[in-house]
Design a protein around this nucleic acid. Sequence first.
DNA 1: GCGGTTCTGGAACAGGTGGTCAAAAAACCC
DNA 2: GGGTTTTTTGACCACCTGTTCCAGAACCGC
Lengths: 202, 202
Amino acid sequence: MARPRTFDEHAVIAAAREQFRRTGYAATSIDDLVRATGLGKGSLYGAFGDKHALFLRAYDDYRDHAVDTARAELEGPDAGALDRIRAYVARVSCDSALVPGEECGCMLSKATVELAGSDDDVAARSLESFELLEAVLVAAIEQAQAAGELDSGADAGRLGVSLLATLRGIELLGRAGKPAAALDAIAEDALAGLPAVAVADA
Amino acid sequence: MARPRTFDEHAVIAAAREQFRRTGYAATSIDDLVRATGLGKGSLYGAFGDKHALFLRAYDDYRDHAVDTARAELEGPDAGALDRIRAYVARVSCDSALVPGEECGCMLSKATVELAGSDDDVAARSLESFELLEAVLVAAIEQAQAAGELDSGADAGRLGVSLLATLRGIELLGRAGKPAAALDAIAEDALAGLPAVAVADA
DNA sequence: GCGGTTCTGGAACAGGTGGTCAAAAAACCC
DNA sequence: GGGTTTTTTGACCACCTGTTCCAGAACCGC
C-alpha cells in the first residue's frame, strides 16, 4: 500500500493559480510555487509533471471559475435578464479598478498577452475561454430580448461580443490606473448602448 | 579625444523595443537584446545602464510612435474628422487580427499587463500613454462635432474613452485568435454607436 | 610614437532556474 | 519485523541570468 498524498490537489492548483495570476508565467519561479503551495519541488513535479503543465492546469481552473461566476450572475429566468447583465457589467468594472497594495487583474488577459503568441496550448485555451464568456453574455442578451427588455430585432451575438470587448478594455485601463469613476462611465455607456425596445405606436 | 560610438542610439532602442514588444520583459534576456541590437553586453550597459532602464527607454519610444501614428491618422481639418476616426478604428481592428507566423500585438498592453501592478515606472507610463491616445481620440470627436458630423450634444470625453476601451478589447481578443471578421464587427458596431447628428425638424 | 579619453565585447562572477534523484517516510499486508 | 509501493523533501545538477570588469580598440592632440 503506497503512502497517501498529504495535499489536496485542488487546493494546490488554486494556490498556483493565484501565484500565476499575480506574477505571470515567466516571472513565476518554481521556488515561488513551492512557497505558494507549501509543497516541496519533488512533490510538485511528481503530481503535475512540470511548470508548464501546472500552468495549464491553473489556467483551466481559472477559466472554469470565471465562466462559473459569469453563469451564476447571468443565468436565470428571461425576465430580469437585463438587470443581471447590468449588475455583471458593473461588477466587472468595479473589480477592474485598482485597490492600493493589491495585485488585481484577470489571469485570462495576463496569460493571453504573455503567452498566446508563442504557446499554442495557451492560445487555444484563451480563445476558448473568451468564447465561453461570450456565449454566456449572448445567452443572457437573448433572454432579455425574449422578455421584451431589449430589442429582439438586434443581433445578440454582436451585442455580446461587443460587450465582452468593452469589458476587456475596461480591465486593461484599470490595470493602467484609470480611475474607477472613468471605468464605471465606460461600463454605463456600454449598457446604455444596448438597444432598448422600440416604443410601440399606440 | 574619446573613441566614437559605433551605433545609432535610436536604432538600438528601436531594435530593443521590437524585442520587448514580442517577448515582454521577464522573458527577454540580455542575450536576446544583444542579438536583437547587435551590440555587446558591455556596450548595452555602458549606453543604457541596465535592463530595466533600457526597457523604459524602449517603452517611451513605443508610446511616442503610437501617439504620433494616432495623431497622423486623426488630426486634420474639422470636416472629415468622422471619416478619419472610422479609418483609424478600422486600421487598429485590422492590425489586431492574427497573421500566421507573426508575433503581433501592442507593447502598451503587454507592458501594462505584465508590469504595471509591480513597477511604478511602468504603471505611470501606461496610464500616460493611454491618456495621450484618449486625448487624440477625444479631439477628433470634438472636431467631428464642430463639423456637424456627430451630435454636438454628446460628451466627447466619454465617447473617446469608450472607443479607447473597445479598441483595447479588440486587441486582446485578436491576440487570443478571434477571427478578423469578428473583430471588424466589433469595430463597426462601436462606430455605429457614435451619436449621429439628429435630423432637424423641417 | 606617446598620452589621454571613451568605447567595445566577452570572460568572469554570484546568484537563480527548471528539473532530477535518492534517502527517508507513510501506508498496508504477511 | 520485513516487504512493497508511492510520496516527500531538499540537495544536487547543468545551465541560464543580469551585471561587472578589463584588455584592447578607436579617436585626437602633441
